[in-house]
């Protein structure tokens, strides 16, 4: 890798020029089963990257490796705050066995060495889950407050200041509430702030999960099928939400998605997985036209590919006209 590459260098795509996350030769084995097989790809800073593939391709496993819930069998997961590390820096942090090299302007984290809570707390990678995991018995506001746990814990003097009502804690609590209010506004849940999360309709629960993840100030947001179970209108709102998250907060987004209208509409970069290996990687346009992708999705031979392409085009057209009307 070239030292401190400039984003526009040599017409490289953003994910090559300025990657926030580099997945390198990732393997994940469960007993004899190889769920992820020598997977490498990069996620560009400020990009919306989609990870797609047929059911059982290993997408969620990759997510679980990135977010620390699984320990990869092999491979390196490099997350960069600030600018991407040079090859020497990377080699050094890898060799000395540290899980991170934290600098003033930029830091590098080796996610495969970190337990899950550090991946989210220190490396600032937040995630949502395929089967929504909210704190259903807590209110919407409480869910968003829990997400700011680490900040508030310090502000409450690890409970001591808070227990005796010392100053500082109240201000921190107010600031946290303001942030929660901002995100409730953003996902349209202000009216339901005091309702239990378990009471919300499905679509609202998905939005709340995203808001909760954002409350932990991530630099990379990983969404596991955010549009699953949403109706077309809700999908559209989701697209807008994700775009604004990126535009206003500079958060990079990595998402798993089956809904092609979402994938093709908003992503800058698509990575396609099948049987744990990467079969395609590029812009949505390039991936869409990749015959291997079509074959993997439909299990068809080359003859049927054109037909499928036409179908996908039609679907996207239908969605985008729906969006503009």
């Amino acid at each position: 890798m070239a030292p401190s590459p400039s984003p526009a260098a040599a017409g490289l795509p953003n994910w090559e020029a300025d990657p926030i996350l580099a997945v390198e030769h990732l393997f994940m084995r469960f007993g004899g089963l190889i769920a992820v097989n020598d997977l490498s790809f990069k996620v560009g800073r400020g990009d919306i990257t989609a990870l797609i593939g047929p059911n059982g391709a290993g997408k969620t496993t990759v997510f679980n490796c990135i977010t620390g819930f699984y320990k990869p069998s092999e491979g390196r997961l490099v997350l960069a705050h600030g600018h991407a590390p040079t090859a020497e820096e990377l080699a050094r942090v890898t060799l000395i066995g540290e899980r991170a090299l934290v600098g003033r302007k930029s830091s590098v984290y080796l996610l495969e060495r970190m337990p899950d809570y550090r991946v989210s707390g220190e490396a600032k990678v937040a995630r949502t889950f395929q089967n929504i995991r909210l704190f259903t018995g807590m209110t919407v506001l409480e869910n968003l407050m829990v997400a700011q746990h680490n900040t508030l814990m310090v502000a409450s003097g690890f409970s001591l200041k808070g227990l005796f009502g010392l100053p500082g804690w109240n201000a921190a609590q107010r600031a946290a509430t303001e942030k929660a209010k901002y995100w409730m506004e953003k996902v349209g849940l202000t009216d339901r702030a005091d309702d239990p999360a378990g009471d919300l309709p499905y679509g609202a629960q998905r939005r709340l999960e995203i808001a909760r993840a954002m409350c932990s100030d991530p630099i990379l947001l990983c969404l596991d099928e955010p549009a699953a179970g949403l109706n077309p209108r809700e999908s559209l709102e989701l697209n807008n939400l994700l775009r604004s998250v990126r535009a206003e907060h500079g958060t990079s987004i990595l998402l798993i998605e089956h809904d092609m209208s979402v994938v093709m509409e908003i992503s800058d970069h698509v990575v396609v997985l099948d049987y744990g290996t990467k079969i395609s990687d590029g812009t949505p346009e390039a991936v869409k036209n990749d015959p291997r992708v079509i074959a993997a999705y439909l299990g068809v031979d080359e003859d049927a590919v054109e037909e499928v392409e036409a179908e996908i085009d039609a679907e996207i057209a239908a969605h985008s006209t729906g969006a503009h009307s």
Binding site: D116, S120, N150
Partner: peptide
């Protein structure tokens, strides 16, 4: 409520 969600929010 949910231990896994806790860990995904950086809670030790």
């Amino acid at each position: 409520e949910d231990e896994i969600a806790c860990r995904s929010l950086g809670i030790n």
